[in-house]
Nucleic acid binder design. Structure first.
Lengths: 258, 258
DNA sequence: AGTCACACTTTCACTCTGTGGAAGTGCAAC
DNA sequence: GTTGCACTTCCACAGAGTGAAAGTGTGACT
């Protein structure tokens, strides 16, 4: 859960702790933008006392980052909307992403998602969901470190590395996958090389225990726009099936690159 | 300028003043999302001392709302991207909006924008810019009160008024247009009636001195999604031209309503 | 009508957080 | 070398932000 991660910033023992009231307010804002509505719910998510939440929410409301309907519920406000759309670097890509994703979904009936790199995270900006009873969902806004999962590693492998290198926190050279496996920076480099060679990223049980994924880059004029990923529950993971999906993904990705 | 309006919250003499550090942080965030990059610039825009700005920006960075490149410049961070795509109430609409806007732009070679209502503001979420030398620009994220301009008034006129009535601050019954003209609440009601009758909003020198606009509603299943607006510099405002644009807009809006 | 439960707001005294001036750092230009 | 600039860190102090508790309002159940 995301709330937890952010909240941790508050009681980070060593190093800088940031401005407390600001961190709390941002937590509340995130929670509201992700669908929490009532004061109590928001306060809970952000781990803040009711009175404090009330005060901070009032501030966010004054600044037009949130609005409050007559029944007391909080919703994203106009300034937040404006901010998000003003800063959106991907508006152009998204249309393409949506089309590719849903046509591939129709072909495979598996969830297909489009990821871009933002800072050191991979963020899903568009997805088309499988219609099967057992499915891996992946909603726009899903976010995680670039160095985990097929999509993230593909973003790393095919980017021209203008960003801070490989996205690991400075000084780190080991990290864990969701299943507990330990990877080193050298592993990661090696994986990226393999991915570049194969033209496609693959991962199993990495960002989620129960699913695997393949991800292929989409280029436009030699520039990496993002990656197209097929995410599948572990319950469907036999060899031929994986091969079939890889082939379809390859085709789709190449068709939409220019 | 927007910065000023938000900053005013800080030294509002009477009534609640909100949590100071939060307001300042939000100012910095707005400024960054709107294109300010360096510490000094951001601090200036938000009216905050350098040391404070530095501390608050560090906090925003820790929370992933901003990221900072190697050269020190600040950019919107992954959490903002995630929020944009996670909470987006308009994701479905936006695709449609983009298509309609750019095809109408191609037809008229005037800037076409798509507005939705968020709180008591109209916000541009998509636009296609005229290619003429003299043009009115309108970027996604542009925001203003609902009761000003063709787009805003069209949003008012065709909505089912579920929102707080007409969007004027409670107790107000007069307001000024950009050109200084004074309007009353009664005027506004009357205008809305006319707009409903004509099926289209019109305004001249209202949200900007130097341009006029027409705006038509887009419905989906009887529900107002937003309005499509053509915004044109005053330098092109003869009668036939206005009529031509109105006709084209009407056609486009009806074609994309269902 | 009366009681209870719940969701939220306001108050207030205390404390610890956030503040801004000044000093420090690092870099690029001259 | 020296100067100027952009930014960061330090620190003592003031007052901003905090949370417990009391207050308000609403809706449900009896």
């Amino acid at each position: 859960m995301k709330g937890a991660t952010l909240t941790e910033l508050e009681d980070e023992p060593t190093e800088q702790r940031g401005v407390r009231s600001v961190i709390r307010a941002l937590n509340l804002l995130s929670a509201a933008a992700r669908g929490s509505r009532t004061l109590t719910e928001l306060a809970g998510q952000a781990g803040v006392s009711l009175s404090t939440a009330s005060r901070l929410l009032a501030t966010l409301k004054m600044a037009d980052f949130l609005e409050q309907h007559a029944d007391g519920q909080f919703f994203p406000g106009p300034e937040l909307t404006a901010l998000l759309y003003a800063g959106d670097q991907w508006s152009g890509i998204r249309k393409l992403a949506g089309e590719v994703a849903s046509s591939l979904r129709d072909e495979l009936d598996e969830t297909v998602a489009f990821f871009v790199r933002s800072g050191n995270d991979r963020v899903c900006i568009e997805s088309a969901e499988s219609r099967r009873l057992v499915r891996r969902v992946c909603h726009p806004g899903e976010r995680g470190p670039v160095y985990l999962g097929a999509a993230g590693k593909a973003l790393l492998a095919f980017s021209n590395a203008e960003h801070g290198y490989l996205g690991l926190p400075p000084g780190t050279d080991e990290f864990k996958t969701e299943s507990g496996a330990v990877r080193t920076l050298a592993d990661l480099r090696a994986e990226c090389a393999v991915i570049r060679e194969r033209g496609m990223g693959y991962s199993g049980r990495e960002s989620t225990e129960e699913s695997w994924a393949v991800a292929a880059p989409i280029f436009q004029g030699g520039l990496l726009l993002g990656v197209l990923a097929v995410v599948v529950p572990m319950t469907r993971s036999d060899e031929q099936y994986v091969a079939k999906i890889q082939a379809a993904l390859q085709r789709a990705a190449e068709a939409s690159s220019r």
